[in-house]
Design a protein around this nucleic acid. Structure first.
Lengths: 146, 146
DNA sequence: GTCCGTGCAAATAGTTTGCAGGACC
DNA sequence: GGTCCTGCAAACTATTTGCACGGAC
């Protein structure tokens, strides 16, 4: 679970720097969002936020997650199921990639120094500079049963 | 460029095995599709097919590409720009991953034995079996200019 | 008071599907 | 001739935007 206070501070800085405002909705969404390690879709996030603040609209959550992404508080992920998911940025901002179980839908994280290093070499060999990457591995994690 | 005859044969086998039919449209779409190494979106593909067979509809190309994917003739790719792209399966069926230039949009391919091997280890260490994967690296390929 | 944010509803974009007529074997 | 295929148009899904009102500073 990401550290709420750290994310909040990061968000406040972004708001201040861009002349944006602190609102009850943004606070509530951040609290819900920071309180999970799952990769939540907007619908799931909306549902959870509405539990502690009914009346919040989809568009607000949508725009807030774009804001969080710009503020370096959230990562946007698309795993190809047609849903955009959001994940709190780790406090140390360490990168990681994903293992997705095609049976149960669970999402695991991995980070491998060897692969990271090799990527940089591959780009360098071609005279390219890496901007970002994603490395998703679809697996069966549970031996066949849910 | 993928070998048209090889892809055609692979498609014919799939059609025969599933009681499906050979049509002029499918032939035309395969010809256009096999004749490129680019990663074409449906719109681009449709436009090209219509040049040699006007009147072909979007839905036909759409369904045909799903068919090609099932037949092992095309790979479906999503690079996060909101467009599904299709790429001919290489004759030797070798896997590869992608480098995408965020400036000019060009898509390059790479294949790295070290990374491939490492992935398998990562999954095995966790008792998972790999189903598939994608590894996309966004880069600046052109030193800043288009 | 001003500007930004919210919630609603409508617009958009890409994809998917139902159906009537046409093509394939 | 029966079945599959096509092209059109409509439905769907997720996302994005316009706007009038409300809230933050």
């Amino acid at each position: 679970m990401a550290d709420f206070d750290t994310l909040k501070e990061r968000l406040e800085q972004h708001l201040a720097r861009h002349g944006l405002k602190h609102t009850r909705q943004r606070e509530a969404i951040l609290r819900v969002f920071a309180g999970t390690r799952e990769h939540l879709s907007l619908d799931e996030l909306l549902r959870r936020v509405q539990r502690e603040m009914p009346g919040v609209g989809y568009a607000t959550v949508y725009r807030t997650m774009k804001l969080f992404t710009a503020a370096g508080v959230a990562h946007e992920r698309r795993f190809g199921d047609g849903q955009t998911r959001y994940e709190p940025v780790a406090v140390d901002d360490e990168h990681h990639d994903h293992l997705i179980c095609v049976r149960c839908g669970r999402i695991y994280e991995f980070d491998d120094a060897l692969i990271e290093r090799r990527q940089v070499e591959i780009a360098r060999e071609r005279g390219m500079r890496i901007v970002s990457h994603r490395h998703d591995i679809w697996v069966i994690c549970c031996g066949g049963e849910e």
